[in-house]
Amino acid sequence: MKNKYLAILKDGILYKNPIFIQLLGLCSTLAVTTTVVNSVGMGLAVTAVLMCSNLMISLLRKFIPDQVRIACFIVIISGFVTAVDMLIKAYFFELSKTLGLFIPLIVVNCIILARAEAFASKNTPLPSVVDGFAMGIGFTFALVILGAIRELFGSGTLFSGTGFEITVPGLHDKPVLFFVSSGGAFITLGILIAAFHYLIDKHEEKAEAEDK
C-alpha cells in the first residue's frame, strides 16, 4: 500500500514530471519563471489547485456523467483557480502583482485537466490527492530550477523579493538580458529537458542492471 503512494510521488516528481517529461503547461512556465519567488508562487498555486480539483473530481467521479465530464472538470477547476486567485490577492498582495495575469490562466493549464482526466476520474480520493500533490511539486521543482537559472544570469540576483536576497556583483551590473526574454526561457528549458532526460535514463539503466 505504502509503495503505491511512493510510486505516485516518484512519478509526479521524476518519471512523469509535468514539465521535463510530459511538457505540459509550458506557456505559464516560460512566462513566470523570471525569478525564483515567482516560480515558487506559481508552482504552489498550481499545486493547491491540482490537489483540490483532483480531490473533488475523484469524489464526484461516479456522479459525473461521462458525456459532460470535461465541462464538469473545467467548472470545478476554474472554481478553484478563482478561489486561489482571490486568496492570493488578499493575503499575498506583492506576489499577485507579479503573477497577476497568470493565475487565472491556470484554468487552461493542461496539467490540471490532464490529471483530472487521466488520474482523478479513475482513482479513489486519497491517491488522487497524492497524485495532485506529486504533480504539483514536480511542476514547482521544474519551475524553481528554471527560475533560478534565469534570475541568476538574467538579473544577477537570487531569491530577490525575499529576505535572503543574494546579489552577484559582476552579473548584477551587466546581466545577460537574454535569459529574461522568452527566447532565453525556451533555450534554458530545452537544455534542462535534455539534462533531465539524460539523468533519468542513466538512473533507469542502473536500476535495470541491478535487477539483472
Binding site: P65, G79, M86, L87
Partner: peptide
C-alpha cells in the same frame, strides 16, 4: 445530465461566494 451540471456549478458558485465574502474586504 442537465441536473448534474446544475448541481456542480451551484456547488462551485457557492464555494466562490464564500471565498469572496472572506477576501473581499482585504
Amino acid at each position: 445530465i442537465g441536473l448534474t451540471l446544475l448541481v456542480i456549478t451551484a456547488l462551485v458558485a457557492g464555494m466562490l461566494a464564500a471565498v469572496n465574502m472572506i477576501t473581499k474586504d482585504k
